[in-house]
């Protein structure tokens, strides 16, 4: 009998049969895992296990690689209800859950990414903070999954200052002044990603989403042979309408 307990973020609940459901969680120490919830279709259980909620779970199965079931799934933090009325926060919450559900391999622990996701989800109530944080979290997601963007030094000169662009080919930062004729092929690097003390203007947020969007679509999800989750685009559209993003994001 295999069994483990963990704290996990709910990535969604899918009905299974008449009364059951399959819960997908991103566990801090066990990564993305799925399991049956007996009686999970009930209104009470569904409410507790909405996407974005942090749950305390105990998973059991006859064998470690079988579907198994969650014997315990109790909420530690119910965020979904808090953000229901806030369209921006709710689309961001959905985008986080969908990116994790679609991008993460099953059963691989990513505690740093989990901690980042928890912080991001907790701050979704503050629209002045979370867009920049979302981009930083996406940078972390790319990095954890092997598609990281190196913003520490210039790929051409090795210099650690004056970094203004990123090469879409290598994913490494470049000094725009050194790029010459290749400048227009590079992706702008918003300065809040280089120096966290620099505030992010709406133009920087657009550049940030363009940067992470490129590597998500052309590297990470291209490798998985699936599109970037639609919720991310809906979230950016909403930010554009709210004036939080100004400029090209694609």
């Amino acid at each position: 009998m295999a069994e483990w307990s963990d704290t996990g973020i709910s990535l969604g609940l899918r009905r299974f049969g008449e009364t059951g459901a399959i819960l997908e969680v991103f566990g801090r120490d066990h990564g993305r895992r799925r399991g049956m919830i007996y009686g999970g279709a009930s209104q009470k259980k569904r409410a507790l296990m909405q996407s974005g909620n942090t749950l305390s779970v105990t998973w059991r199965a006859r064998q470690a690689d079988s579907l198994g079931h969650f014997a315990v799934a109790e909420p530690e933090r119910e965020r979904s209800a808090l953000y229901m009325r806030d369209a921006g926060a709710l689309t961001a919450l959905t985008a986080v859950a969908e990116l994790l559900a679609e991008a993460l391999p099953e059963g691989e622990a990513r505690p740093d990414l989990f901690d980042g996701a928890t912080t991001l989800l907790d701050l979704l109530g503050d629209p002045d903070i979370w867009p920049a944080l979302f981009i930083k979290w996406e940078m972390g997601l790319l990095s954890v999954l092997g598609f990281g963007v190196d913003t520490t030094k210039c790929a051409l000169t090795g210099a650690e200052d004056g970094l203004t662009h990123v090469s879409p080919k290598s994913g490494r930062a470049v000094r725009g002044s050194e790029a010459g004729e290749y400048l227009d092929r590079l992706l702008p690097l918003p300065q809040f990603l280089v120096d966290s003390s620099i505030p992010a203007a709406p133009e920087d947020i657009a550049a940030g989403f363009r940067l992470t969007g490129y590597f998500l679509s052309q590297r990470l999800f291209a490798d998985l042979n699936r599109p970037v989750p639609e919720a991310r685009g809906l979230m950016i559209d909403r930010l554009e309408r709210a004036g939080k993003v100004v400029g090209a994001t694609h």
Binding site: G12, R46, A47, Q50, S51, G52, S80, M84, A87, L90, T91, L93, T94, A97, A231, L234, D237, R238, R241
Partner: peptide
């Protein structure tokens, strides 16, 4: 419905 999916749909329709 007052679920994440239901309310995401509601916000989408509102837009």
């Amino acid at each position: 419905n007052a679920t994440v999916d239901g309310q995401t749909t509601a916000h989408y329709i509102t837009d």
